[in-house]
Write a protein that binds this DNA or RNA. Structure first.
Length: 458
RNA sequence: GGUGGAGUGGCUGAGCGGCCCAAAGCAGCAGCCUGCAAAGCUGUCAAACCACGGGUUCAAAUCCCGUCUCCACCUCCA
């Protein structure tokens, strides 16, 4: 079965057929670097990372673009509030995103362009739109440039909305012709830093949010590309506007539109105004990066994912189960092949049904554990190979959370040896005391038939 | 007002006409294993109406109609 994806423009599940054989081009909306990342940003980035990994595992060469919006109202406002230079501020915030992405095990996109590096592309696109009658300079003579929604009958086609039903602004302002018209360039304001304005054919201005993505997608992927992805909350206005600009310009733009659902906290979307956002720092108090990745993968990408106090603990337990099997199996055998169980492939191809795919992993782990107990090496080898292949393509890891010094490691292993001796001498009181001591230090022992292995928890 | 989506066991969360007396995980219980634990395995836990009420069908969690509740978006948002 081929990969099927839900295309949110046609609102149907469509078989994925790439524009060019064995190649996939995807554009994903990255962050506006206005404040530190939260769970929602991580989920969105992870969804497209998983899709990209699955494409690669399926034999496609993937070109993935994830932009950085480093010039925007909020960047300037938040930098000003922090009394910081906006460029430094944006870079600093971007670093926190990159740190989180990398800790979460996301692969680097092929390109991570910054909006400020592509002003010329945006100007060219806007000039083209003006020449085609789809954009205009503000009627008040300012450097504001707007997209003329009345010139584009398809405006609203991505989100199936009619302009007259849109709430919009109540009055035509800033020199717009229609209330629904949106900014392509925003005229420089006197209270904004001069470094945040560029010389354009219409005067000193900075780009609007939507034109950035259209210009960068065109720059890196051309007029037509396979997939455009982003969070559900970007469908309107951001993606609607991107589509309007690019298609009015005559570009085919994205063939498939993907939108990931949001992360909720006790049923409600995270937002700063509700004060229920979960910062990355707060998460790491509760769980590891690998648990966060596992948990974020545990709902299909179009389903809401609800965060609660036990989420990461539960995810860690489930992950430990998989990791425990791999660890024990690798003590007596090694991976000699790469193969995915058929059910896993079916799940991944069914609009990236990661939770169903994870269920297959757990089924293989259970069978693998049984094979391990029975010392059935043939089955064990097969299950181990399958589990490792699946875990790899999902980017799941089981690293020890803490690095221990050689000295400490030796000490722990010394104690384990003492305990083994005590057990041999049937001095169980002493053996239990050693185990209790290690437990107090956060060391968990696992007695296998011929040896004891240990790990650090917490 | 418009546009999408959702309501499945104690919790998370798949399934979206027959393989469903509903996957998987977490939590709980019992047995096996163990000196005792932990881990593992097995069984169990469990949905007396898959939000509620109708309907279509040989067959419905899944399709249709109605109702209720919830969420998101409608020019800041992943």
């Amino acid at each position: 079965m081929a990969l099927e994806l839900f295309d949110s423009k046609t609102q149907t599940v469509r078989e994925f057929v790439s524009l060019k054989p064995h190649q996939v081009s995807m554009y994903v909306c990255g962050p506006t670097v206005q404040s530190a990342p939260h769970l929602g940003h991580l989920r969105s980035a992870l969804v497209y990372d998983l899709l990209r990994r699955w494409f690669e595992a399926s034999g496609y060469a993937v070109t993935m673009v994830r932009n950085v919006t480093d010039i925007d109202d909020k960047v300037l406002v938040n930098a000003e509030a922090a009394k910081r230079n906006w460029k430094e501020f944006a870079l600093e915030v971007e670093d926190t995103f990159n740190d989180a992405y990398s800790a979460l095990g996301l692969l680097e996109p092929t390109h991570s362009p910054h909006a400020t590096e592509h002003i010329a592309d945006m100007i060219a696109l806007v000039e083209s739109l003006i020449s085609k009658g789809h954009a205009y300079q503000a009627q008040d003579g300012s450097a504001n440039v707007f997209f003329d929604t009345s010139s584009w009958p398809n405006y609203g086609s991505l989100t199936n909305q009619k302009p007259e039903n849109m709430e919009g602004e109540s009055e035509v302002s800033f020199g717009k012709r229609n209330v629904n018209d949106f900014a392509l360039f925003k005229a420089h304001k006197s209270d904004e830093p001069e470094s945040a304005a560029w010389q354009t054919p219409w005067g000193l201005a900075r780009p609007g949010w939507h034109i950035e993505c259209s210009a960068m997608a065109k720059h890196f992927l051309g007029n037509a590309f396979d997939i455009h992805g982003g969070g559900l909350d970007l469908r309107f206005p951001h993606h609607e506007n991107e589509l309007a600009q690019s298609s009015a310009n005559g570009d085919a733009f994205a063939n498939y539109w993907l939108h990931n659902a949001l992360v909720t906290i006790e049923g409600q979307k995270m937002s700063k105004s509700l004060g229920n956002g979960i910062s990355v720092a707060a998460l790491l108090e509760v769980g590891s990066w690998s648990a966060i990745r596992y948990w974020l993968s545990s709902a299909q990408y179009r389903s809401n994912l609800d965060y609660s106090a036990n989420s990461l603990r539960d995810a860690q337990s489930a992950l430990d189960r998989i990791g425990g099997f791999v660890r024990r199996a690798k003590l007596i055998t090694s991976v000699t092949s790469t193969e995915f169980p058929e059910d896993f492939v079916l799940a991944m191809n069914a609009d990236l049904n990661i939770p169903a795919a994870i269920a297959v992993i757990h089924e293989c782990v259970r069978s693998g554990n049984t094979a391990l107990d029975a010392q059935d090496m043939e089955s064990l080898n097969r299950y181990l190979a399958q589990v490792v292949a699946m875990v790899d393509v999902l980017g799941l890891t089981f690293e020890q959370p803490k690095e221990l010094s050689a000295e400490l490691t030796a000490k722990i292993e010394g104690l384990i040896e003492l305990r083994a001796e005590a057990k041999l001498n049937k001095d169980f009181a002493k053996a239990d005391q050693i185990r209790a001591t290690l437990t107090d230090f956060g060391v968990t022992l696992e007695d296998l038939p011929n040896q004891t292995i240990w790990s650090i928890n917490g």
